[in-house]
């Protein structure tokens, strides 16, 4: 069936099978492969994107459920920051992307797009969190490389405004 959505600011319309998972539509249908799949039980958060401004696990949303919605993936994050006038650093990225590099909050980078998207959404809902709140806020995003230590530092630095 026809599914239309705005993805990273671009209107997209495709005919998709109803069972198509949003993450597969984004990756295989739209070719935006930055969003990754790390599990099949909504546990790991590697597939986190923003759906109408909120973090969702795109492996547990059907593409048809997202019909008519506004999606932001990691590929579009820096653009949203630029439009909002808060892009930072030499790369002109979203402050969270910048902070992840500055704090060495990524190693293999596989969980990173989801972790960044979850972190951005979390801070929008809780702009001044404690360390414990950040840790709880990222409870649904697993990372196997970093031990989370530097991810927490990155989110703290954005929350503190010093990224």
């Amino acid at each position: 069936m026809d599914v239309s959505m705005t993805v990273n600011g671009t209107a997209q319309s495709h005919d998709v099978e109803p069972r198509t998972l949003l993450v597969h539509h984004i990756r295989d249908g739209l070719g935006l492969t930055g969003t990754n799949v790390g599990c099949d039980s909504s546990s790991c958060g590697a597939c986190t994107v923003h759906l109408d401004g909120q973090s969702v696990k795109s492996c547990t949303v059907l593409a048809v459920q997202a019909n008519g919605s506004d999606i932001t993936t990691i590929e579009g994050l820096a653009d949203t920051a630029r439009s909002a006038g808060n892009a930072t650093g030499d790369q002109d990225w979203h402050p969270m992307q910048e902070a992840f590099q500055q704090c060495h909050a990524l190693q293999c980078g596989y969980c990173t797009p989801g972790m960044v998207m979850a972190s951005v959404a979390f801070l929008e809902e809780n702009p001044n969190p404690t360390e414990a709140e950040i840790r709880e806020g990222l409870e649904g995003n697993l990372c196997r490389c970093t031990g989370y230590h530097n991810i927490i530092k990155a989110v703290q630095s954005v929350a503190g405004g010093d990224a």
Binding site: G45, S55, G140
Partner: peptide
């Protein structure tokens, strides 16, 4: 319940 992304849906 679950995690933030789950609670959004």
């Amino acid at each position: 319940v679950g995690d933030p992304a789950v609670r959004h849906r």
